[in-house]
Write a protein that binds this DNA or RNA. Structure first.
Lengths: 141, 141
DNA sequence: CTTGACCTTCCAGCGCAGTGGAAGCCCTAG
DNA sequence: CTAGGGCTTCCACTGCGCTGGAAGGTCAAG
């Protein structure tokens, strides 16, 4: 099938499919004499895998890694488990950071109700956000 | 003071300070005859505000907004409150997404222990990540 | 006078996952 | 023959907050 039909069947755009090929997560397909890409059913499975892996939070680089391991040394199970563990740990960290940030923001917000706009000094721009209010490093949003 | 000393006093780099000027969150300072930037104490306060606002999760664009409002129409309290509220709501959403993703990842991880590597089919790349496993859209990490 | 630290400007690139557009070829229907 | 829809390639751009480097001016110490 041509790229348009593959796009229709996977819900991706033709742009994205060609981009995935260049990103190394979809093998370059056969070509018709015209130069058109000619995909087999395997491409549908492959794109389903890419989508699932993305939904699990893996980057295209990590997905490419998995595919490479699979192709060169068989089942990439251990590799994938390590990835999932490290992502779960990332998520734990990120969630903790965001939760702390949310607490800070809500604290600022509720403190704001007790402030008198008249006491607001232009040099500090806005007293709702005090210079010593949140000394935390900015988490990756 | 010159940019290097301002950098030393704020813990930023000279690059970052000049970048902040171009981003509109730090006013252009006076210049010495040599062309060197010459900052006053206000710059230290301003950078402290920028840091605090960043730590509260505001982007440079939002910080610039606040500064503009402050300069043109006095205390930007209401504007800032709206921003904080909307950020808190964003954080709620993001945390919920990440928490759901984490649950998915951990589910995949624990399910993986029950799988036999021998049943792993190359067309699906890796059975640890099943095509129908996580149908969730990818949240912004 | 020279060295070296400091400063100036401007341009480029990072990471990430695409998206947009231009110029041009292929194929079929009318 | 022409219109159109699909396909090809390539290059540029998005957002965000910087960071790196090149080419050159300034200034104080030795």
């Amino acid at each position: 099938m041509r790229v348009g039909q593959l796009a229709a069947r996977t819900g991706l755009t033709t742009k994205t499919i060609r981009f995935y090929e260049s990103a190394g997560v979809l093998p370059a397909p056969a070509r018709r004499p015209s130069g058109y890409r000619d995909y087999d059913e395997g491409a549908v499975d492959r794109l389903a895998f890419v989508k699932a892996a993305q939904a699990a939070g893996l980057s295209l680089a990590e997905i490419r890694e998995i595919i490479t391991v699979r192709a060169s040394s068989g089942a990439p199970c251990q590799h994938v488990l390590t990835l999932l563990d490290s992502h779960a740990a990332d998520l734990d960290r990120r969630i903790a950071e965001l939760t702390a940030l949310r607490a800070d923001v809500k604290r600022l917000r509720s403190r704001a109700g007790t402030l008198d706009p008249a006491t607001c000094d232009p040099t500090t721009v806005c007293q709702v956000i005090p210079a010593d209010g949140v000394a935390r490093p900015v988490p990756t949003l």
